[in-house]
Design a protein around this nucleic acid. Structure first.
Length: 296
DNA sequence: CGCCAGGTGCTGA
DNA sequence: TCAGCACATGGC
């Protein structure tokens, strides 16, 4: 077992905030994969411990959990209004993970117009059907199938896994990655608009999915995915008027700046968490936040 | 059973 | 540019 120092970090928030779909809680441990490595991780205070099925360096783990990011400095940049401030206070330590770009692209194609529970099931069946088996002690799982593999899977087989109309989109994206038309590794090196434009070339990838892949899979910290939840959150900055996602996205970019994606992750996790555990009275808090929103 | 889900592509104004 | 619509599926 290897232990690293992980200040300003909250593992459970990272793994339950809708940016990753395969981690499972097992007592104090979380079981999952980092790339092709089967891993279990556990947080105790400022310490993060892990075990892996094969050599997995501390640097790879640090990179995956974005522990190299100066979180206090970053939060200072996005802590620009009452609403995001409250989310930061509640979930300080939440970080945007640095996941594999292909797995992120494939996962978020499956995520479109879908709910998280079913997304998890679809991805798990996809891995069982097309991925290589792997294990860590008693934990057995399957590696996420690579693009070359999925490019050769017939659409009807993907439909049989429950992907529905997303099946042809996933197959086409796999082809595009496998044959090099979409150079995913390169998208970490270019600027955000360039990365997003490249992702949008895939069928079944619109603004929201492209932003998720850019943010979670390509280290594009400015990317700002807007789904139905974020649309509700952002409406609040416009005095609850109806707004198009394009307007909301443009506003968020200017309002939060180069780390807008991290603000998005805090707001998203916060609104989802509020639904799960509603606050006791909320009256004063919501009035204060409304007043703040109006002055923006 | 009806509504909803980390949307996208297409169409017609 | 933008609203309106179809699209598969299953969780709740």
């Amino acid at each position: 077992m290897i232990t690293l120092h992980a200040p300003d970090f909250r593992l459970d928030a990272c793994l339950t905030s809708g940016q990753t779909f395969r981690w499972m809680a097992h007592g104090d441990w979380w079981h999952g994969l980092i790339g092709r490595h089967v891993v279990r991780v556990r947080q105790e205070g400022e310490m993060l411990s892990y075990e892996a099925s094969e050599a997995l360096s501390a640097e790879q783990v640090r990179a995956y959990f974005a522990l190299d990011v100066d979180l206090p400095g970053l939060l200072r940049q996005i802590d620009v209004d009452m609403q995001v401030h409250a989310a930061i206070q509640r979930f300080r330590g939440l970080r945007v993970l640095r996941q594999d770009a292909w797995e992120t692209l494939a996962s978020f194609i499956c995520a479109s117009f879908n709910n998280i529970t079913r997304i998890e099931g679809m991805i798990e069946r996809l891995c069982q059907a097309c991925g290589d088996p792997a294990a860590l002690a008693g934990f057995r799982t399957f590696i996420f199938p690579d693009a070359e593999t999925l490019a050769g899977v017939p659409e009807r087989r993907l439909r049989a896994l429950g992907l529905g109309y997303r099946a042809p989109y996933l197959r086409a994206a796999a082809r595009r990655v496998a044959d090099g038309r979409l150079p995913l590794a390169h998208l970490r090196e270019v600027d955000y608009p360039t990365a997003k434009r490249a992702l949008l070339a895939c069928e079944g990838v619109g603004d929201k999915v492209a932003d998720c892949v850019a943010l979670f899979g390509c280290a594009q910290d400015a990317a700002f995915p807007i789904d139905v939840w974020m649309e509700r959150v952002l409406r609040y900055y416009f005095r609850h008027r109806k707004i198009t996602r394009a307007v909301a996205h443009d506003y968020a970019q200017r309002h939060f700046g180069p780390y807008a994606g991290w603000a998005q992750q805090y707001l998203y996790h916060d609104v989802r968490h509020q639904r799960a555990t509603p606050p006791p009275t909320g009256r004063h808090a919501s009035r204060a936040m409304t007043r703040e929103a109006i002055t923006i």
